[in-house]
Design a binder for these strands. Structure first.
Length: 107
DNA sequence: AAGTTGACGACGA
DNA sequence: CTCGTCGCCAACT
């Protein structure tokens, strides 16, 4: 477990239920602005470990990860729907469910 | 040590 | 809106 990964998971855990965040947003919140790509990588080889709500993380377009590691985007979609986040065609409306950077860094 | 890879992002056409 | 490119960063080979 690298320091970078740890920071990423911590950031992901801060996403409130019923909301979603983007990789870039997580990267910033974790203290690694611009490392959106690396964030995705980290989450990939780390399905959950300690209850990390990785299903609340989508790309900048609100689109779900196409290579989600549990059961494909389908599983991610189900989880989001279960939290009240409506997902249409594997896409989330960030204008409604997306959160502000301040919501993640307020700690 | 150097090059490749990938759950990404911003921008221009 | 849909590509195609280029830039990014950390992990992996």
């Amino acid at each position: 477990m690298t320091e970078f990964e740890r920071a990423v998971y911590e950031a992901v855990k801060r996403i409130p239920e019923g909301n979603v965040s983007t990789y870039g947003q997580i990267a910033r919140s974790a203290g690694y602005p611009g490392a959106a790509r690396a964030v995705g990588n980290a989450l990939h080889h780390n399905p959950d470990e300690t209850n990390v709500p990785c299903h609340r993380v989508v790309n900048a377009s609100g689109k779900l990860a196409k290579n989600f590691g549990f059961g494909g985007p389908e599983e991610q979609r189900r989880r989001l729907m279960a939290e009240g986040v409506y997902v249409m065609d594997l896409t989330v409306d960030l204008n409604d469910y997306g959160i502000d950077d301040s919501e993640l860094s307020k700690y």
